[in-house]
Design a protein around this nucleic acid. Sequence first.
RNA 1: GCCAGAGUAGUUCAGUGGUAGAACAGUCGCUUCGUAAGCGAUAAACGUGAGUUCGAUUCUCACCUCUGGCUCCA
Length: 593
Amino acid sequence: MNYAKNMEKNMEKIRHSLSHLMAMAVLEKFPKAKLGIGPTIENGFYYDFALPAGALAEAGLPELEKRMRELIKQNLEFKKEKTSFAEAKKIFSASGGKNQSYKLELIKELQKSKKPLSIYNSGNFIDLCAGPHIKSTSEIDPDAFKLTKIAGAYWKGDEKNPMLTRIYGVAFESKNELSGYLKMMEQAEKCDHRNLSERLGLFMIDEEIGRGLPLWLPRGYKIRHKLEEYIYNLEEENGYPHVLTPILAKENLYKKSGHLAHYKEEMYNPIEIDEEKYYLKPMNCPHHHSIFKHTLRSYKDLPLRIAEFGQVYRYERSGVLTGLIRARGFTQNDAHIYTTEDGLSQEIINVFKMHKKVFDVFKIEGYWYRLSLPDFKNKEKFGDIKNKKVWEQGSKILKKSLEQTGYKFTEAIGEASFYGPKIDIQIKNIWGKEETIATIQVDYYSADKFNLYYIDKDGKEKPVVIIHRAIFGSFERFFAFLMEKTCGNLPLWLAPVQVKILAISDKQADYAKKILKEFLENGIEAEMAETNETLGKRIRESELQKIPYILVAGDKELQNNSASVRHHIKGQLGEIKIEELIEKIKRETKDKL
RNA sequence: GCCAGAGUAGUUCAGUGGUAGAACAGUCGCUUCGUAAGCGAUAAACGUGAGUUCGAUUCUCACCUCUGGCUCCA
């Protein structure tokens, strides 16, 4: 344990030191470059530079790498020195010959927070840095790092600031670990849902139809439909009746809901008809509120739950679109729970339970919770909130529920939605990138806007509290995540084709047709492949289609009313009687194995 | 939207200032096969628009789309 921890710490130092060496190499090549920051990240490091436009392209990275290796071999020492603000300013200012304006900005900020300053000196390179670093570059394996990509990144992560050039690198203890990592990335590429879709025919996006507007192909939709069916049944069983609402609504609804004030940039421009403006819905909440208001609600009706596979359209900025993970049109597995203040906590816990149940079924592990709270200093986002107290209360209840469940969670100040604090469930995709896969949000905001109330025991109207939640945040994103996680090797119950039947030759074709019919009659998704290709080829094609069961039927099997069974993960299962096989597959489908 | 890169048959790739090839997939024949690619024939592409040029798929510019990153986000 300690050993592992030390290794990790040491790796941090190595990665951080590599970022300094990279800055050295960049400054040698571009003496006028200005330095931003150069921290470590998971598996590596980066450094931000202000460079002349177009000065550096990805093709220039090997040259920088080569120079870094030379520097490593010089056994440069990293020397830490404490310094004063005045001294630091002098070092990084124009008079010190550096003119490092971004560093000066950092120094100013550090001065405000009165944190002690230190600089690191390695070779002829000085950086403002708290460290820690390795003692000498002799601790770095020169073959265990690689500069991977160039990207633009806003100074301090604010898009109002200038964009700097960021160079990313990955680094490990040894060359072996590096090549292991690179292989993993290669593997990830094969399992990318867009690549899988190319091979398996899951979805498409057509320029002519529009960016970010996916079209589901038969195989993909079959899988999605199974997901829908599963979650529909689960929700109906758990007191979430489903509704269906239109994808348009008039302007006034979104004025009322706050969407036009807070969310307009993400909305498609309105459609004008009969002198009225209609917007495509970016969220389902207002429609559900409208259903809530349709009749007078008693405290006895609460908690009242409304679920919908709600199609929404959001104008996502062009650069963020990513297959099904980030689309402009998508379907949320949405639900709204209208509850009393007192009932809130229990409902949140129930929602957690449901999430966990679903995630267990899909064998999703390693997820964590992110509690997103408001930042009242952010006037633009949270400026119109009058009753900060209830927001704080909502935040508190969310936090308490989390603590009660004992789940691991992080806090994100300022990440709350415009209508309330929320908990997002975060996962890491095959690339190691963080994504939100599900969400639970508490809303004290809309009851007032929409006048959503119930009649309490005392006969008085009281505002409801609303929980917005989505288990499959969207079918699109969840589907993509699931495909990538399994690399297309779906569990039997989700497989769009569960069984492929292959007759060895025309002699057994009738037999194959007969068992195909039996499978279909038993609700098993089965297909058969024509015999004009060799058996080997048909097996290969079926394997590439990731079909769970491949059944080979020859003379022997015809005699025995059986099939020779091959499983996509377990391999050869030998000869099995057809009736037995049907039972086995039905059972495995039912048990979601 | 911003930064960087890329766009060649359905797909994955090769290639060229004198309009292009391969593999797989497709189609048509032949083959009827025992666990991951049988044989032959055949059809099929330079993202769009301008410019430079005798001539542009190739060079330049703009646009569109895609990939990675930043900001944003389910």
